[in-house]
């Protein structure tokens, strides 16, 4: 995956990409969402102060022969900010649910809280969900087995990967897998096309028809 990081403070004016994907990182406070993002976009690791509100980074990548602009949104995990976070679910094609493999509560909260938040706030019915267990570098402190992660992912219908932002393990793969899956989902591509706002409906027409005829 070739990549070049574009600073988000200098917005790209000309669309020199095929698709713009919006990805969202959610999960409990302190599971390492910001670290994952930093590792992915800047290939560095440092102890970050807790996110207040939201942060986002843009990264240009080439995947499957397509030039992609990824806007990755990083949200605050504190309970208090949850209702405000709902703003950022809008239009996301991919949602990454992060937990800390050394803290069981961060895992159980995914099904108790975060999965419900997605149902509630996601505006893209087809958006791709991914489950990511972070901090596998602390294998000795592991509190959630890989199998539990797989089982949850299967039940909830999402992608699954374990990674470490600290050791870099699986971080790139995590984003790549997610993007490939989005590229496989036509309804998501329709919204993400970089072309000037095309007639969205026309692109989706066959799909809508299929649904209509399926009904009757």
């Amino acid at each position: 995956m070739d990549s070049s990081t574009a600073s988000s403070s200098h917005p790209q004016l000309q669309p020199d990409f095929d698709y713009l994907f919006k990805l969202l990182l959610i999960g409990d406070s302190g599971v390492g969402k910001s670290s994952l993002l930093l590792r992915f976009t800047a290939d560095s690791f440092e102890d970050l102060s807790p996110t207040i509100g939201v942060d986002f980074k843009v990264k240009m990548v080439n995947i499957a022969g397509k030039k992609l602009k990824l806007a990755v949104w990083d949200t605050a995990g504190q309970e208090r900010f949850r209702t405000l976070t709902s703003s950022y679910y809008r239009g996301a094609q991919g949602i990454i649910m992060v937990y800390d493999v050394t803290r069981r509560d961060t895992f159980t909260n995914l099904s108790d809280i975060w999965a419900k938040e997605i149902d509630l706030y996601s505006t893209n019915q087809d958006c791709i969900k991914m489950l990511v267990g972070n901090k596998v570098d602390k294998e000795s402190e592991r509190a959630v087995t890989k199998k539990e992660g797989i089982d949850f992912a299967r039940e909830y219908g999402c992608l699954f990967l374990e990674c470490s932002a600290k050791t870099k393990v699986n971080v790139e793969q995590c984003f790549e897998e997610l993007v490939l899956k989005i590229l496989d989902t036509p309804s998501l591509l329709a919204d993400a096309s970089s072309g000037a706002k095309k007639n969205i409906f026309k692109q989706k027409a066959p799909e809508a028809d299929a649904a209509a005829s399926g009904c009757c």
């Binding site: 600073s7 509100g53 900010f81």
Partner: peptide, 20 residues
């Protein structure tokens, strides 16, 4: 607004700061 201002400190997340 967040997209436009990006990471510029003090602009995004103002609401969260107010709440905090």
């Amino acid at each position: 607004a967040a997209e436009a201002f990006g990471n510029a400190v003090g602009l995004s997340g103002q609401l969260e700061r107010d709440i905090l």
